[in-house]
Write a protein that binds this DNA or RNA. Structure first.
Lengths: 208, 208
DNA sequence: CGGCATCCGTGACGATACTG
DNA sequence: CAGTATCGTCACGGATGCCG
């Protein structure tokens, strides 16, 4: 276990970077915002990270109170990594980075990996934490716990209970939203994004 | 010039990290939020950064549109580095990191460097962008352009014009504010932070 | 097969010295 | 003052092996 490298500056931003400033760390946090993940899943959704770096980061993050390691109950016993409450508080950092990075996104390069739940971040920002929403894309579907105080912030697959609204959109629309070229209300109004459900949130979105 | 290393993920947060995720980059941004700086000043206020890494980062940041390099008019001709508008938009990223890092700050370690203008970040957050404020600490004084759309976000030395309020506090109070143990209104109410000036902002702060 | 640990080549980093 | 040059070290990325 390497003693943590520090910038040695009495400044809270540099202290944050001491903990989450290493390569891959914040992307691991982004993955774990989708809920508990096994080592192999993390490795599969983070192309390019080497096995030893991933293992080392997960150890460091556990030591620093950002993640915990837990054994799943049998059947299917395995270790999963998940964010602590402190780790989930990194969401605003990821969101600020994501907002700033929108103009850098541009067109998808052939070398770029894509995962369906990466579209959760821009949608989460657009929804500003107003309930449980299920989202369907060609790449797969996921759900958003917008405004959840505990537990995962979003997750793969269908919502764990009846969602407050369901969104259906195609990849082009998801990309335009991610790039900030299209707003949520504009996407709904032009029919590129369909809202179903009869809860108050679904109605509010359709009327917006 | 090295071709930029990328995570190659179609996600705006990872694109942001492609640009500002390298070691030292965001701390250079934090320094430049205080206004134009010469190479030597940056090197002096970032203890531990090596000269070649600093030079390399400044080149990369200029290439990526985060900073510009400008020659000061004589006398005192020298090159200064400053943030572009795009670079200044990184303030929310620094603020989110700073907010998250507050619990990590703890007591000052003997190896920690301190600079007066690093106290600008927590104060800027507390003031929420409500005018031009001059701050005096034992370590030195600086000013905040809270809510400035163009130009530096804060700066060393006195305010360039008559400020909307002046704050005087000691190091312990500044540290408590930076650690999040003390709120701005609480600091004012307990007399640990003195507000002078007769503008509306100064009055509002005294009455809060 | 999932979850690492080990090894190795390459590149990034940090310290010092040196130059226009 | 503003970097470039050099060099040792460490972090990273890729591959492979081990062990439950």
């Amino acid at each position: 276990m390497s003693p943590r490298r520090s910038y040695d500056q009495y400044c809270s931003a540099s202290r944050a970077l001491d903990v989450v400033g290493d390569r891959w760390t914040l992307l691991i946090v982004r993955e774990l915002l989708a809920g508990p993940r096994r080592y192999t899943d993390l490795h599969a959704d983070l192309p390019g990270v080497s096995t030893d770096v991933l293992a080392s980061r997960l150890k460091d993050m556990e030591r620093d109170g950002v993640t915990t390691r837990r054994r799943l109950p049998p059947p299917g016993a395995a270790y999963v990594y998940e964010l602590t409450a402190r780790g989930r508080q990194l969401l605003p950092v990821i969101q600020a980075l994501g907002a700033w990075g929108e103009p850098e996104l541009g067109d998808r390069r052939p070398t770029d990996a894509v995962r369906a739940h990466w579209f959760a971040l821009p949608l989460l920002r657009a929804l500003e934490g107003r309930g449980l929403v299920e989202v369907r894309l060609e790449e797969g579907h996921f759900h958003l716990h917008a405004g959840a105080e505990d537990g995962p912030v979003y997750g793969d697959g269908p919502a764990p209970r009846e969602p407050d609204a369901r969104l259906v959109l195609d990849t082009g629309t998801g990309t335009a939203l991610a790039r900030g070229e299209l707003g949520l209300v504009e996407a709904i109004r032009t029919g590129r994004l369909t809202v179903t459900g009869d809860g108050p949130l679904a109605k509010e979105l359709r009327e917006a």
